[in-house]
Every structure is written in structure tokens, then in C-alpha cells.
Design a protein around this nucleic acid. Structure first.
Length: 108
DNA sequence: TGCGTGACCCAGG
DNA sequence: ACCTGGGCCACGC
């Protein structure tokens, strides 16, 4: 999470994957809920569709918007502009990359 | 052991 | 763009 550059955002699923936990999106969310480190850039983590995950109208959500805007991220109606997020195919590229990181998706 | 819950994700419609 | 159903995973009671 600390590796996410300021001004950029990532989805919970992407953070989980980067940390070595495919399908661990909910886990990331839970960890964030218990985080107390004010320096952790938790605000750069959004839902896969770019929306703020925290309950709309909550103080925490407002805090996240404030932090994002302070980094130049455009937040509109509880949502971050697509252009500021990694391309939609980024996750697929990671999962299906030819060589590393050799992560297997469990079949349905 | 079982079951509901949630800062989640995705394919379909 | 929104809603739904199914899947996922860790907790807590």
C-alpha cells in the first residue's frame, strides 16, 4: 500500500494481489478498518469501480476525499475519475502474465 | 460446528 | 450506470 505513488489509487483486490493474497480484497478492507497508523496511505485504496468504499457521508469518507484531493486526485460524487486509476486490464495482466508472478486463479 | 456480516469483486442483464 | 446473484475470506457469537 505504501508503494502506491501519491496521486494514484488502487483497488482492494489489486493491493491484496500485490501483497501475495489473490482474492484477498476483503482481507485488505478488514486490515484497513483496524489500522491506526496515520501515515499509512489508506486513502489511495478504492473499490474496483473507483468509488470510495467507506459509507457515503461518513466522517471517514470525507477524510479520504480530503486526502485524495490534497494529492491532486479528482474526486467527484464519491468517485475517482477513471483516468487517475490504472487501466481496467491491469489486474488481468498481472493474473495472466506469461512468466511471473505465477499466480493461479482457482477455477469456478 | 454453524451462520451472519462486511472499507470486496465480477459477470450478467 | 445500476441491480443482482454467486463467490470469496476472516471474524465473532
Amino acid at each position: 500500500m505504501r508503494a502506491i505513488p501519491a496521486g494514484e489509487t488502487r483497488g482492494y483486490g489489486e493491493v491484496a494481489l500485490s501483497a501475495g493474497f489473490p482474492r484477498g480484497a476483503r482481507r485488505v478492507a478488514r486490515v484497513l478498518g483496524e489500522n491506526t497508523d496515520p501515515h499509512l496511505p489508506w486513502h489511495r485504496v478504492l473499490r474496483a469501480d473507483g468509488r470510495i468504499a467507506l459509507p457515503a457521508g461518513s466522517a471517514a469518507a470525507a477524510e479520504q476525499v480530503a486526502r485524495l484531493r490534497a494529492e491532486g486526485v479528482v474526486v467527484e460524487d464519491g468517485r475517482v475519475r477513471a483516468a487517475r486509476r490504472p487501466a481496467r486490464h491491469a489486474l488481468d495482466a498481472l493474473l495472466w502474465a506469461p512468466a511471473p508472478p505465477a499466480i493461479i486463479r482457482r477455477p469456478k
